[in-house]
Simulated assay, not measured.
Amino acid sequence: MVSAVFHSPLEMTAATTAAAPVVAHKPSAPRTAVAAAPARKPVDLHRFWMRVLPPLAGFGVLVLIWELVALRSTNGFPSPLETWKQALDVFSDPFYSKGPNDQGVGWNVLSSLKRVALGFGLAAAVGIPAGFAIGRFEFLSRMFNPLISLLRPVSPLAWLPIGLLVFKGANPAAIWTIFICSIWPMIINTAVGVQRVPSDYMNVARVLDLSEWKIVTRILFPAVLPYMLTGVRLAVGTAWLVIVAAEMLTGGVGIGFWVWDEWNNLNVKNIIIAIFVIGMVGLVLEFALIKIATAFTFEEVKS
């Protein structure tokens, strides 16, 4: 029989104190917790300069060529410095309004963007569903492919007189021109994306007896989205190119009309400023759509 002997905590403490030798310690300063500083990641200067220097060098070459052309010009072609001073004056009040034909560059850009948004929106509303239908059904593909191949290469300005004749107005005619020229990239890219969907997906849809609506929303749309966004990006670039040419002919408020009006006034500085404004707006639209396309694209498509 095993007996258990229990000792009180006080007895154990006293015994331990008696057994342990007494060692005198000097009072020490309180310890302070020293946080280890995180290691700084070294700056990759080579990568930074490779991103910064090439664009700066490109702009430098452009300005140099521009300056040489201005120096050798005999008809008063403006230099970069003169154009810069004029740009400061133009953008000091970009939203002034002194009548229907004398408005700031800000109002002209907004008017052009409004026309582009209307024409492009109508083209997307028609072109994307048409692309799905043409890519989905072989009969429609064989029916419309010759028409698309015939009409797509037509110059944008060739459609403008048709719009003026039908709509009896400059603004609807410009929107019509944007619509008819922006619709082709969206139809073609969407149809190609539908036709490239793996056949296994469609076989699974037949086995599950999915409806046409579920096939489009659950199978086709996620697979076709990268192609569709590429068509949208190309269409926006086309629309922004077309509106400048259309507004030169139709008149009214718009960046294209502003360029033509400044040419009539022989103000070459403002024409050069308008060229840079058109380029910057197009660059912003392109960059925004690339970001949207990247956000909605699968990783394997991105690579």
Rank of each mutant, 00 (worst) to 15 (best):
S3V: 13
V5F: 09
S8Y: 07
L10C: 02
L10F: 11
L10K: 15
E11V: 09
M12E: 14
T17C: 07
A19I: 03
K26F: 03
A29I: 05
V34Q: 06
A35V: 08
D44F: 07
W49I: 08
L53I: 15
V61G: 09
I65L: 15
W66F: 04
E67V: 02
V69R: 13
V69T: 04
A70S: 13
L71H: 05
P78I: 04
S79V: 05
P80H: 07
K85L: 08
K85Q: 15
S92E: 06
D93R: 09
F95E: 10
G99W: 11
P100W: 11
V105P: 00
G106C: 10
W107A: 02
W107P: 08
W107D: 04
S112R: 11
L113E: 03
K114H: 11
V116S: 00
G127P: 15
P129L: 04
P129N: 02
A130T: 13
A130H: 02
E138F: 11
R142L: 06
M143Q: 10
F144K: 12
I148W: 01
L151V: 10
R152C: 04
S155V: 06
A158P: 15
A158L: 12
A158V: 15
I162L: 15
L164E: 00
V166E: 01
F167W: 01
P172E: 11
A174R: 05
I175D: 01
W176K: 01
T177E: 00
I178C: 02
F179L: 15
F179T: 09
M186L: 12
I188F: 05
N189K: 05
V194I: 15
Q195M: 13
Q195Y: 08
V197C: 07
S199W: 03
Y201H: 14
Y201G: 03
M202E: 14
V204R: 08
A205F: 08
D209I: 12
D209E: 05
L210C: 07
S211K: 07
T217N: 01
P226Y: 10
M228R: 04
L229D: 03
L234K: 12
A235D: 09
W240E: 01
L241W: 00
L241H: 00
V244N: 00
A246I: 07
M248V: 01
M248Y: 05
G252K: 10
G256P: 05
W260V: 10
E262L: 01
N265W: 06
N265I: 02
L266D: 02
N270R: 07
F276C: 12
V277Y: 03
V281L: 08
L283E: 05
L283W: 10
F287A: 08
F287C: 00
A288R: 06
A293D: 00
F296K: 14
F298G: 14
E299V: 13
